[in-house]
Amino acid sequence: MFVTGTSSSLQPAGKTMEKVGDKPGLNSPMADVLYNLAGKNRKKMKGIIGRKIGMTSIFDPGGKQTACTIIEAGPCVVTQVRTKDVDGYSALQLSFGDKKEKHTLKSEKNHFSKAQTGAKKFVKEFRDTSLEKNIGDTVTVDIFAEGDTVEVVGTSKGKGFQGVVKRHGFSGVGEQSHGQHDRQRAPGSIGGSSYPSRVFKGMRMAGRMGGDRVKMKGLKVVKIFADKNYILVSGSVPGHNGSIVLIQK
């Protein structure tokens, strides 16, 4: 499905690709259009890698209590700068969390040495970021200000194999009597019989729940402790304490 306004797109897709080094196609106008069509990063964002520390609540002077999550965000080192010319897209590769040397591969050591930094545990690319940084620079919580609205991405807590009531919010069987027995949390019918003679794809059933990538939007930055690299955001954040989260604005 190539939907685009550029005239070159009328040709077969293979021929519109331009050669850039050894990576054909990455720099073509088509790649750009498809990327935008996918709806990703319409707004230029800036982000940082952090570690969820835990939750607490704080009072404002008026006495209103707000639940907050403490995140240790950064400092992150820019370990690679992806550019449109070389890589076909622009991004900043940020690295966070120190790693022991004995756990570091030779190839990793070399990669991090280009940024004059020790080996890091977590590496993440932030695409089309509004931060203007060079390799070796550090990104700290200072990129955010108190009162900002941010979104936090994390991996939700694993819940194991769960039934449809917990996993999909089914209401279960409403009654315990009137012929119901041992099926209070059952899913009920999953489809017709002779037609369609199959179960439709995507039918919501019991299964593994949690452990998904979850994005929490609209969290407010309540407070920033620049000296400790702590950032206090309102509300909850996916994942268990100590898990890695991305904070974006």
Partner: peptide, 12 residues
Amino acid sequence: NAVNYVHEQLTG
């Protein structure tokens, strides 16, 4: 402890 630190700064 980070939680204690935050409250030391914010909570009277």
